[in-house]
Amino acid sequence: MRPDLEVIKSWIDRDTRVLDLGCGDGDLLLQLESSLGVTGLGLEIDPDNITRAVKAGLNIIEQDMDNGLQNFPDKSFDTVILAHALQAVHRPAFVLDEMLRIGREGVITFPNFGHWRCRLQLASRGRMPVSPMMPYSWYNTPNIHFCTVYDFEQLCSEKGIRIRDRRLTTQTRSDSRLANTWPNIFANTAIYRVSR
């Protein structure tokens, strides 16, 4: 089970409307629909993912969020989720704004580029970090906007976005304790709940 799922579930109310941007094959939406009875809608561009999600009974719109989200009316969803996609969009700051225009709340998860392993790879080898979580080389990665926990919080502060909750996942239990003190070094994945 994906580590962010339980956290996200705990932030979403029953029977609400949820928009999942970059929903993949819809595993998260499906969990939210079956456990919380939410009305979900997913945005996705990969054809195979779309077919799989439709097969699972989900409603999916084929749409590239890099081309905008203006077709979604203001406050038409309770929660807008951007899971593991912030680093792949062309205009992350714009997408954040759009999420909080469309939804009352936003949930964002992203890999923390400030993790000590990334720092170690860059510092010791002088090469862009490659890990099981970020397996791409710099020249062919879909991940074009990596950020750290601090970077993200700085952006939220500049935009007047309120961070309502934050959870950090780590690789090991000992890292988990350290991440409480040094999130920017020990968090693997950051999960945020934000609103205006």
């Binding site: 009305t39 809608l41 054809p47 779309i50 439709v54 989900l58 409603n59 999916i60 719109i61 084929e62 749409q63 077709n71 979604f72 009316p73 038409s76």
Partner: peptide
């Protein structure tokens, strides 16, 4: 979408 209907779309 704006009418709140359940919709799936593929191009």
């Amino acid at each position: 979408i704006a009418a709140g209907r359940a919709v799936t779309y593929a191009d």
